[in-house]
Nucleic acid binder design. Sequence first.
DNA 1: GCATTTATTTACGTATGCATTAAATGATAC
DNA 2: GTATCATTTAATGCATACGTAAATAAATGC
Lengths: 222, 222
Amino acid sequence: MTEKTLSSSQRAIQALRAKVFSGELSAGSDHLETELAELLNMSRTPVREAILTLEGQGLLEMRPRKGVRILPLSPDDMAEVYDVLTQLESHAAECAAAAGFAEKDLKTLAAAIDDMDAAIENSDLDAWADADERFHSELVRLGGNSRIQAIVGMMSDQVRRARTTTLFMRPVPTKSNEDHRIVYQAIRDGDIATARETHRQHRQDAKTILVELLGKHRLRYL
Amino acid sequence: MTEKTLSSSQRAIQALRAKVFSGELSAGSDHLETELAELLNMSRTPVREAILTLEGQGLLEMRPRKGVRILPLSPDDMAEVYDVLTQLESHAAECAAAAGFAEKDLKTLAAAIDDMDAAIENSDLDAWADADERFHSELVRLGGNSRIQAIVGMMSDQVRRARTTTLFMRPVPTKSNEDHRIVYQAIRDGDIATARETHRQHRQDAKTILVELLGKHRLRYL
DNA sequence: GCATTTATTTACGTATGCATTAAATGATAC
DNA sequence: GTATCATTTAATGCATACGTAAATAAATGC
């Protein structure tokens, strides 16, 4: 095993991230540095460093004397996030298709798609969401632009926060996997235009569905 | 005047940024926290906080026991940066065109274009670069996506670092401003496709020119 | 000499203390 | 009752101290 002793700062980052995603630190809530330090059993110093880092990733905001605010996401915010994902991921799909990967280079991508099918069979939404993330993450990796990877990672974090709430509100995403297969084939066949355009449309659909869902359920923040 | 007493952390961020851009802290160089603290006349604490922030913006990297490394930019890195800019800015141009701005909303954009013309007349490359930045920054602002603004801002910082070196190596960018005018008109006329495609091509050309220039001059890092 | 171990240095990570200053509370005037 | 000012509270920003572990130097064995 790759045993590593994480620094307190690193643990703080992980722990805070986890608590934000789990909702233990809910969106819109404020927390004093002292409170978080106590919660994580460490001094304020590493907590402050973690806060700085997470602020840079858009998860929270330091507001002097008012505490650390876990950033809420409005439907407009989600639209912004999805627009960034749409542009950068479709570019990644384009690049991946242009790169001329062999089928064996694409096995991770294919596996994610198969897992999604299986998850839908079993009506296991969590497994589906997990595989979906793997697909998108691998797609971006294949795109070969490390900065796009980093940015998409940050935006995906935002989506992940919303997912807990939204995942069970929407219909089983069967259409979604058809898109994934088309993108996969386009990349394998070097069909640049199809890879890009299919994925672009795929993400744009996801945005529309989500934003409408939020509107329908009167969710103004999450 | 808007007089404000900046915190030491804030001053550290500004000062370090300035020193990176000016080259006083040159790309690839390593610096101990103590050294930077001394340089900025403050304790390590605010310096560390600034380092964390700037690390999140991709300007430097904390390497325990080896010092803070000012990240060098390879031609491949520049290509990555320009690809992100190309995707996100062309999307912003598209959105701006779709938004149906009145001519008066576009005066900042028009002013930047005029300034670039004037700068070319005067062979003032610095003024040109300044106006060029204003154009791109305003374009993205008009796009209306705050996340894209933030990301483009970060990527522009990377470009800015290279500019000191590259600005005087290349021919006067006359063609560039033709593109800008076309983009401007397309936005004003609500011609979404032209706005996007012209700007996309504009940025892609810039990438090609820069990468070739770096190759020609055997600049492997900057 | 060269390799390996031991000692030393020192940069970093974290805890702690304190001054500052924004916010909250209370007092006073109207 | 309200508004203004003084007072108190306490969260933060920063400096400082210190233990730890990495890197370097020294020492030992072969």
